[in-house]
Computed example of a mutant assay.
Amino acid sequence: MEILGLLNQQLVKLLTATFPALVFHWWNLLLLSKLTYQQNSFAASLPPQALERQDLAALLRNE
């Protein structure tokens, strides 16, 4: 499980450095739009752009 935590930390660093450079409203366009209903409900309860609070499955979700 330690490796998944490390992967999650590094992925958050990569995404927070990359996403804002791609599009201004990245939180809504690139993250929230890709989450399941349950994940989206959880994300809505977080402070804006709290990517580090998302689980690894949420970060890797791609449709």
Rank of each mutant, 00 (worst) to 15 (best):
L31Y: 11
L51V: 15
P47Q: 12
L15C: 11
W27S: 04
N28A: 10
F19G: 00
T36D: 07
A21N: 11
H25G: 06
T16W: 03
Y37W: 12
T18W: 03
A44V: 03
S41K: 15
P20S: 10
P47D: 10
Q38P: 07
P20L: 05
V23K: 00
L29Y: 00
L35V: 14
L31E: 12
N40V: 05
F42H: 14
L35M: 15
S45W: 04
A43Y: 04
L51A: 08
A21G: 09
S41P: 02
K34V: 10
P48N: 09
H25T: 04
L29K: 02
A21L: 12
S41L: 15
A21M: 10
Q38H: 10
V23Y: 00
S45Q: 13
L29N: 00
N28T: 05
L31R: 14
F42R: 13
S45I: 06
S33A: 12
A44T: 06
L32G: 06
Y37L: 15
P47T: 12
Q49V: 04
K34W: 05
Q38K: 11
L46F: 09
P20C: 08
P20V: 07
L30I: 05
L30F: 05
N28W: 02
A21H: 08
L14T: 11
W26A: 02
N28G: 05
S33M: 07
P47K: 13
K34E: 13
P20N: 07
L15N: 04
F42K: 15
L32E: 15
A43G: 08
S45C: 13
Q38D: 14
P48M: 09
A44M: 11
L46K: 04
